[in-house]
């Protein structure tokens, strides 16, 4: 009897729930379409993003209970030099990435832009190839090439008759640059394609008109191409910088941040704090800094982007 009653109650509840849901979706059908995405988006992106701030004021070893400890994590994280060393390395990576990936990328894009379609296609494909490889694999291949005893680079240097034999990733002064070279190898091609997309969006007739007005190639580039590329340039620059602040794989696979902390970056330091030293609160405190930096850069991108678009963007 009672089970029957419970069953019918349950059924009533269920059917009314269905009815309510149905009416909600009938009145506001957009939620039916938004809900599935939100069910993943909220718990696995939005809440963790807010959670960084929450976690940063707790002590937690990854095991057992968390205990509130105020600003202790921040004090400990930011009185150690290593976090500043890491931050500085990220800034160095960002600078060189701007010069090498974005800068050289632009030059290459201008060169390729003038080739016939078939050649252009060839270059686009070969230039993009490194980007499609997984960074772990790229790091390993370069780690192999950097090997001082039997790596390709030192073997070639030796074959050329030089007795210079750099230690590359094993050297305190070279490790970071060795990593920057790998990042440049993998991402410059991608920047070239981005620049090409920007160049393609320039109206040919403007350049033609300038040519007829007697402007030389350098003048045309300076006064027409460059200003029109500005929105793309902002986009490329800022995403190159953001990418540099998020560096992890190359460093982790090739040097683990070493020798010493010579190639330590923010993300490897966060990783070490959390997963090697079991200090999740302190890792979250460092993540807060990284988050703020990336957020500011993104906002800068939006602002500059908006100004460039002159409000024409919807």
């Amino acid at each position: 009897m009672s089970t029957q009653k419970q069953g019918s109650n349950l059924r009533a509840v269920a059917s009314s729930a269905v009815a309510i849901t149905k009416s909600v979706f009938e009145e506001r059908p957009h939620w039916l379409f938004l809900l599935p995405a939100l069910l993943i988006y909220l718990p696995f992106l939005v809440i963790p993003a807010l959670g960084i701030f929450g976690l940063s004021v707790f002590q937690w070893s990854g095991l057992g209970d968390m205990s509130f400890n105020g600003i202790e994590n921040f004090v400990r994280a930011f009185t150690s030099d290593i976090v500043y060393t890491s931050l500085w390395h990220n800034i160095e990576i960002a600078f060189w990435s701007l010069v090498l990936q974005a800068g050289v990328g632009l030059v290459l894009a201008l060169v390729i832009y003038r080739f016939s379609d078939r050649w252009r296609q060839f270059f686009q494909v070969t230039y993009l190839l490194p980007m499609t490889l997984m960074s772990v694999a790229v790091s390993m291949v370069w780690g192999y090439m950097y090997n001082p005893s039997y790596g390709v680079l030192n073997t070639v240097i030796k074959a050329l008759g030089s007795d210079w034999s750099p230690l590359w990733i094993g050297s305190e002064s070279q490790a970071l640059y060795a990593i920057i070279i790998v990042a440049t190898w993998q991402w410059t091609g991608f920047r070239v394609i981005l620049w090409l997309a920007g160049l393609d969006s320039i109206d040919e007739s403007l350049l033609e008109a300038a040519r007829i007005d007697g402007a030389g190639p350098i003048q045309r580039f300076r006064y027409i191409t460059l200003p029109l590329l500005k929105p793309v340039a902002i986009f490329i620059s800022i995403y190159t910088i953001i990418g540099s602040f998020n560096s992890f794989v190359y460093v982790w696979v090739m040097t683990r941040g070493g020798p010493g902390h010579a190639s330590e970056v923010m993300v490897t330091w966060i990783y070490k704090n959390a997963f090697l030293q079991s200090n999740f609160g302190r890792a979250a405190a460092i993540s807060v800094l990284l988050f703020v930096i990336v957020l500011l850069l993104s906002l800068l991108n939006m602002r500059l982007g908006d100004r460039e678009a002159g409000g024409a963007n919807p």
Partner: peptide
């Protein structure tokens, strides 16, 4: 302790880079 281990391991590389 893990923090000490981490610091000592880093020191172990820095010994050979002029530390």
């Amino acid at each position: 302790l893990p923090e000490t281990t981490e610091a000592l391991l880093s020191a172990g590389q820095e010994l050979f880079t002029g530390g």
